[in-house]
C-alpha cells in the first residue's frame, strides 16, 4: 500500500507512545505555565512581533503532503459535512487552515502537529486494516465506523484512547477553522461586524427567551 508508506510513518505502537509524550507535555506549553522573563526570541519563520495587520501574509509554507491533505480533507468532511445549503469543511478550505496551523512554527502549533500527523497516519492504518483502503477512499459508513470508535474520549475503548485524543483535537481544529471563516461565523449565529447608528441591545424576543420583562437599563 503506497499510501501509507510516507516518510513520517511510524508503527502504531511507537505512534501511540509518541502521542502520549506529546499530550503529557501539553500543559507545559500553555502560556500560563511558561516562565515569562527573559527576552522574546523571535520565532524563526514566524510573522514577528510587529507584523502588518492590514496587508496580512502568512510567512510559513504549508507542509502537509498530498496524501496527508487527502486524509485531512476526508476527515474534515466527516466532522463537518455538507448539509443542504451548508457547505462542507473542505468547501470552506478548512483543510488548508489545518495545513497552515500544523505548519506554523509556534510551540502550540508544533505540539498539535505531532498529534495531528500521527493521528492522520493512524487513521489510514486503521482504514487499511479494517477495509483495505486509505481513509479518503472509504464509504461513509466505513468512515463512520472508525470515527464512532474514537469520537468521544470518555467512552473510547482502551485501545482507542490515543486516537480519541487525536480526534478531539482534530475536531476542535476543524470547528475552529469552520466557524472562524467568514461563512461559518454567520452560520453559527454570530451577527455583527457592521457599523450601526445605534445599539439597541437584545431584541424583545431575546428578553422573552431569557425570561425577563425588560432590560435592566
Amino acid at each position: 500500500m503506497d499510501t501509507i508508506n510516507t516518510s513520517n510513518r511510524l508503527d502504531r505502537r511507537s505512534a501511540i507512545k509518541w502521542m502520549l509524550t506529546a499530550s503529557a507535555t501539553l500543559p507545559f506549553l500553555k502560556p500560563d505555565s511558561l516562565a515569562q522573563s527573559g527576552p522574546a526570541i523571535p520565532t524563526p519563520g514566524g510573522y514577528g512581533h510587529d507584523p502588518n495587520l492590514i496587508a496580512t501574509e502568512i510567512p510559513w509554507d504549508r507542509t502537509l503532503t498530498e496524501e496527508q491533505l487527502r486524509t485531512t480533507t476526508a476527515l474534515c468532511d466527516v466532522i463537518l459535512p455538507r448539509v443542504d445549503d451548508s457547505p462542507s469543511a473542505s468547501e470552506l478550505k478548512v483543510p488548508d487552515f489545518i495545513d497552515e496551523w500544523v505548519s506554523a512554527p509556534y510551540p502550540d502549533q508544533q505540539s498539535d502537529r505531532g498529534v495531528i500527523l500521527l493521528g492522520l497516519d493512524w487513521i489510514n492504518q486503521e482504514s487499511n486494516e479494517r477495509f483495505q483502503e486509505p481513509f479518503c477512499d472509504l464509504s461513509e459508513p466505513q468512515k463512520t465506523a472508525i470515527c464512532d470508535d474514537i469520537a468521544y474520549l470518555p467512552e473510547a475503548a482502551s485501545q482507542y484512547l490515543e486516537a480519541a485524543r487525536f480526534f478531539t483535537k482534530y475536531r476542535n481544529l476543524t470547528m475552529g477553522g469552520y466557524y472562524t471563516s467568514d461563512y461559518g461565523t454567520k452560520e453559527v449565529g454570530y451577527v455583527g461586524n457592521v457599523a450601526l447608528a445605534k445599539f439597541d441591545g437584545p431584541p424583545p424576543k431575546v428578553l422573552k427567551f431569557l425570561g425577563v420583562d425588560k432590560a435592566p437599563w
Binding site: V78, I79, L80, P81, V83, T144, C147, A151, Y152, L153, E155, T168, R171, N172, L173, M175, G176, G177, Y179, T180, G184, T185, V188, G189, Y190, V191, G192, N193
Partner: peptide
C-alpha cells in the same frame, strides 16, 4: 455572542457526547 475564535468550541464534547457530522 462575539466573533467565534479558533478555540470557541474546545471542550464541546462534554455536552455533545462527542457528536460529529450533521
Amino acid at each position: 455572542r462575539g466573533l467565534p475564535r479558533v478555540g470557541t468550541f474546545d471542550g464541546l464534547e462534554r455536552f455533545t457526547g462527542g457528536s460529529y457530522g450533521k
